[in-house]
Design a protein around this nucleic acid. Sequence first.
DNA 1: GACAATTTACTTACTGGATGGTAGGTTTTT
DNA 2: AAAAACCTACCATCCAGTAAGTAAATTGTC
Lengths: 190, 190
Amino acid sequence: MNTKNNTLQSIMDSGLRLVQERGYNGFSYADIAEAVGIRKASIHYHFPAKQDLVQAVLIRYRMDFVHKLEQINLQLINGREKLQLFFNLYRETLENNTKLCLCSMMAAELNSFPEEIRNELNVFFRANEKWIEDVLEQGKKEGELDASMHAGEQAKILIAFVQGAQLLSRTSGEMGYYDALVANVMSSLK
Amino acid sequence: MNTKNNTLQSIMDSGLRLVQERGYNGFSYADIAEAVGIRKASIHYHFPAKQDLVQAVLIRYRMDFVHKLEQINLQLINGREKLQLFFNLYRETLENNTKLCLCSMMAAELNSFPEEIRNELNVFFRANEKWIEDVLEQGKKEGELDASMHAGEQAKILIAFVQGAQLLSRTSGEMGYYDALVANVMSSLK
DNA sequence: GACAATTTACTTACTGGATGGTAGGTTTTT
DNA sequence: AAAAACCTACCATCCAGTAAGTAAATTGTC
């Protein structure tokens, strides 16, 4: 095995970016080959089928994301601040309104994937949900977040909201669209 | 021109369904030909390019949707009830968790479309937004809807929410996911 | 440490099938 | 008659995936 593992990671990086920008059915192995600087057939050595690639990308994406959420939890800040950092994460994903969350894109193309990958998507969304739920509980105890609704239900609403916010912001073409949405939601949770 | 206009409408019906289920890059003219019962080349007679078809479908979809919103406004009901009917419309679109709103799907594949079509998408979303804003204003006057936020901003949040709710509900595989989300949002607007 | 064997990481060349789209002819309706 | 609504036949391109070969790195053996 290549000790640096460069090519494999580059392929996954390109795959990730391409799905986020164009969707699974919107790019080909030729696009990745060009971006990475290798031949098309070499990609098949690492990922025999396109679905293998996207599945690997998805699992890595989820693990990275969960890690980032855990990093937020290591900070000694209140729930309200954590929620803001969560929205900042999704803002970074947008990256100047060029990309969506990988899992939103794949959820849109759900019918292109087998059961196994669909399950992975649900694991991602549920991980988000659970994290938000805990943060909402914390915020409620601190009196910094709205306590009128059950945290679990409120978390589901917020994850739906943030996915839709990304979609609409990119369509609008202005990052200010996302920022305004999040600011208003944050203030409504006071 | 065929007085019945059957084929043209059937092509658009199939095109609409296929985009909603699989996305623009997830179906071909061959799929439509099979569904409609004509040959592939015949579709090109009505819509020379695939983009022409999807643009026509998009415009018809938006006009139909706006019409439905206007029909709701003709009913002598309060703002809160109108908002519930709005969520019911999006529930119908989901159709047993098989399809998404056409414009969510196309927004996800935004980079596959030229400026002209992107603008059409924004027109759709802004029409939704404006309609919800008016309904929220009505509901506030009636004291049936939350008045703590500016109606325009609240409307933007709700349209983001409903798009995300569809996406997550279809991924979950259970219509109850959408229903629970909407019920909780409705109760939070009291 | 030297050298052969093996594995890893690619390459070129190709295939069969799908894709959007075109040319030109035929049937059906007006 | 002529326009509208199809059809067959075809094309160039792209696509995911395969086969077979090569060069380089790693490993086993002495």
